[in-house]
Computed example of a mutant assay.
Amino acid sequence: MDGLKVSKANLTVYLHPSKSRDVSEAIFRELSSLLFTFSEALDGVVLAYDINSLDNKNAKILSGVIPYFGVPLSVDLLLFSPKPHMLLEGKVVKLSQESIHVVVLGFSSAIITEKDIREEFVYKTKHEQDVYASKSHKRHVIKVGTMIRFSVKSFDEEILHIYGSLMPDHTGSIHWLEKHSDLISHTDRNAKKRESEGELTTLKQDAIDGKLSPLDTAQKIKKSKKQKIQEES
């Protein structure tokens, strides 16, 4: 799944003098306070941490009314940082004609509205259960409890809410997608081939209409054909 990354960071944790008796415990508490919150400095939601080194001896006291002291440490952080067009996976917890509600990694909620569900899927009631069923593939069904793969449209960092999409062909029920990965790849290749052929037709028509010079036409058609050969190979 996209959106997960491990980041190595050198941090300085500032502690109150009253915590000097048990610095390690105080640092663990400070790091734990970062969990499942979005950090602008780290550009992600902290899911876990692992301290590599902790240097008590080089702790520095800060000047001020209350002399806090800073402890430098090296830490590995597991971050969740979803960006537009990334593919995420989650479990469907609610489904209606207007939207599909999903939980990602057990803590972040996501919603996919009707306008972001491709026409292939049709909402209906099957065996007294609401589902989104594919018109192209009878066994491709999304219902409550289904693990799905979807594309990210946007991410609300304050409430950790994701707005998703099922428009790409390679999104939907993970169970079905994994069983039919060859079919999805073939569909993607055909789509790219049609797009390439469409661009070539447009170039030729533009040349006929006088919108392109003969040199531009030859160069662009040559480039389009080269891309087509690379895709087919």
Rank of each mutant, 00 (worst) to 15 (best):
H161L: 11
G164P: 01
A133V: 14
Y163D: 11
V131R: 04
Q129C: 09
H127S: 11
V141Q: 03
G164L: 06
R139Q: 13
H140P: 00
D156E: 10
D156I: 06
E128L: 15
R139W: 09
K138Q: 14
I159M: 10
K135T: 14
E128T: 13
E157T: 15
S154F: 05
I142M: 09
K143F: 08
V144L: 06
V141M: 02
D130I: 06
K153E: 10
E128G: 04
I142Q: 00
R139S: 15
E158Y: 12
E158P: 03
E128H: 12
H140N: 13
E158T: 15
R139F: 10
K135C: 06
K138G: 09
Y163E: 12
H161E: 07
F155L: 07
S154A: 12
F155M: 06
V141S: 04
V144N: 06
R139T: 12
R149C: 09
I162R: 01
H127R: 14
F155W: 01
V141A: 02
V131C: 06
H140Q: 09
M147A: 09
S136H: 13
T146S: 08
I159A: 08
G145R: 01
D130H: 13
A133C: 10
R149L: 11
K143A: 12
Q129P: 03
F150R: 05
K135Y: 02
G164N: 04
V152K: 00
K138D: 11
I148A: 05
G164A: 08
H140I: 06
F155D: 02
H127D: 13
I148H: 03
V131L: 07
Y163K: 13
V152D: 03
L160H: 00
I162A: 01
A133Y: 03
S136Q: 14
E157C: 09
G145Q: 02
K138W: 09
D130V: 07
S151W: 07
Y163W: 11
I162W: 00
I142C: 05
A133W: 04
E128S: 15
H161M: 12
G164C: 07
Y132N: 04
K138N: 14
V131E: 04
V131F: 04
G145T: 03
D130S: 13
V131G: 05
H137M: 08
K143Y: 07
S134E: 08
S134C: 09
R139H: 14
R139A: 15
I159S: 11
H137D: 09
T146D: 00
R149A: 10
K153F: 05
S136D: 13
G145P: 04
Y163R: 11
S151K: 12
D130L: 09
F155C: 01
S134W: 08
D156K: 09
V141K: 03
H161T: 08
F155N: 03
S151G: 11
K143T: 13
Q129F: 06
R149S: 11
V141H: 02
I148S: 04
D156W: 05
L160S: 00
H161D: 05
K153H: 09
I148N: 06
F150V: 09
H127K: 13
Y132D: 02
K143G: 07
I148T: 07
S136N: 15
R139V: 06
G164H: 04
V141N: 03
D130Q: 12
H161Q: 08
Y163F: 14
H140W: 05
S154Q: 07
V144P: 03
